[in-house]
């Protein structure tokens, strides 16, 4: 089985879907000859031609708006937004159009499409190449929000997203693009959306995380284990619709929970997990839920490594809920 980086797995997933389904079209800014600014679409134009992989004008509103029309009319658009920070001109098309089309037309028109976009910090990208905007989108019924953290999941989730009958926002943790490697099967396979992944078992504390925070939490869990605390690390990997049953099961097994994300805390995804626990599992809890998150500030540049939760902040939180 080949060993790939996460970005190579994304490329492989696109390749696989394009090969098996001629309706899959990949487009966006710089995705053709350049192969995307992170090379996610490298060689797709060469292999499938400019008909299937092509550049668009510099307009996110145009990219997503036309993708919706293509999807309504039988293509499978896989649109790339160069950085998640640049998605906001298309916010209207995503939130008010793609996500609501099925509902407002009574199912007569639908927009099965994938919007791929790199998100998150870790590349010294400053305020506008680092944001984690998942919470904006998780507040949007009709949209699915998927975030892989391993090469295997990246490919399997991407293929599943492309085949999904609903619009999927596929957020790729750019910090992991080249920093994680893993075995990835050749050809077609899928990872079901709305399922979680147990990264590490442990009976003392549960840590929920996703994207680039998964390796951070894993490292923290390993450090905690050295001190005798066994941590269950759960990669949520589909935020919407979330596998709530799996989340609550994991909560009930330890009663001690840490939620980690790099996005700001206020109204972040951790708030949803905390509320879910308060509503459905409060009687199992041995300690208050702790959120380890980015600060409620814009994303900095020079000091980004302080902004993003690191394994020490997570370890501190694990120990806190364990010793509570």
């Amino acid at each position: 089985m080949p060993t790939l980086t996460l970005i190579q797995a994304v490329n492989d997933g696109l390749h696989t879907s394009m090969k098996e389904d001629p309706s899959v079209h990949v487009f966006g800014e710089d995705v053709a000859k350049k192969g995307g600014v992170f090379l996610a679409t490298e060689n797709l134009e060469t292999e499938f031609g400019t008909e299937r992989c092509f550049n668009t004008p510099l307009s996110e509103d145009g990219i997503i708006g036309t993708a919706i029309g293509m999807a309504m009319n039988g293509l499978r658009p896989v649109a790339e937004i160069q950085f998640q920070d640049f998605i906001f001109p298309a916010f209207d098309q995503i939130v008010s159009e793609a996500a609501k089309l099925r509902y407002r037309s009574g199912g007569q028109y639908t927009a099965p499409m994938v919007i791929r976009t790199p998100y998150g910090g870790g590349i010294r990208g400053g305020l506008y190449h680092s944001q984690s905007g998942e919470a904006y989108f998780c507040h949007t019924p009709g949209l699915k929000v998927v975030i892989p953290s391993t090469p295997y999941d990246a490919k399997g989730l991407l293929i599943a997203s492309i085949a999904d009958p609903d619009p999927v926002l596929f957020l790729e943790p750019k910090a992991l693009y080249r920093s994680v490697k893993g075995e990835v099967p050749e050809g077609h396979y899928t990872v079901d959306l709305s399922t979680t992944r147990d990264v590490r078992e442990g009976g003392d504390v549960t840590v929920f995380c996703y994207g680039a925070m998964v390796p951070v939490c894993t490292k923290a869990a390993e450090s905690a284990a050295e001190g005798g605390i066994e941590t269950h690390v759960v990669d949520l990997r589909t935020l919407l619709p979330l596998d709530e049953e799996a989340v609550l099961d994991a909560v009930k097994r330890t009663g001690r929970v840490v939620v980690v994300h790099e996005a700001p805390r206020f109204c972040g995804f951790g708030a949803e997990i905390s509320a879910m626990i308060a509503e459905h599992a409060i009687e199992y809890m041995e300690a208050p839920v702790i959120r380890v998150t980015g600060f409620d500030t814009p994303f900095p540049n020079t000091l980004e490594h302080h902004y993003m939760p690191d394994h020490r902040r997570v370890l501190d939180a694990i120990e806190h809920v364990y010793n509570f």
Binding site: T66, G69, M70, M72, N73, Q93, S96, E97, Q108
Partner: peptide, 25 residues
């Protein structure tokens, strides 16, 4: 006769996308 959306102008790129899809096929 595609489902009408209240926000102004959102359907224009969608029309282009739908036409593009037909053109491709």
């Amino acid at each position: 006769f595609v489902s009408i959306s209240s926000p102004i102008g959102t359907h224009l790129p969608q029309a282009v996308g739908a036409a593009f899809a037909a053109q491709r096929r």
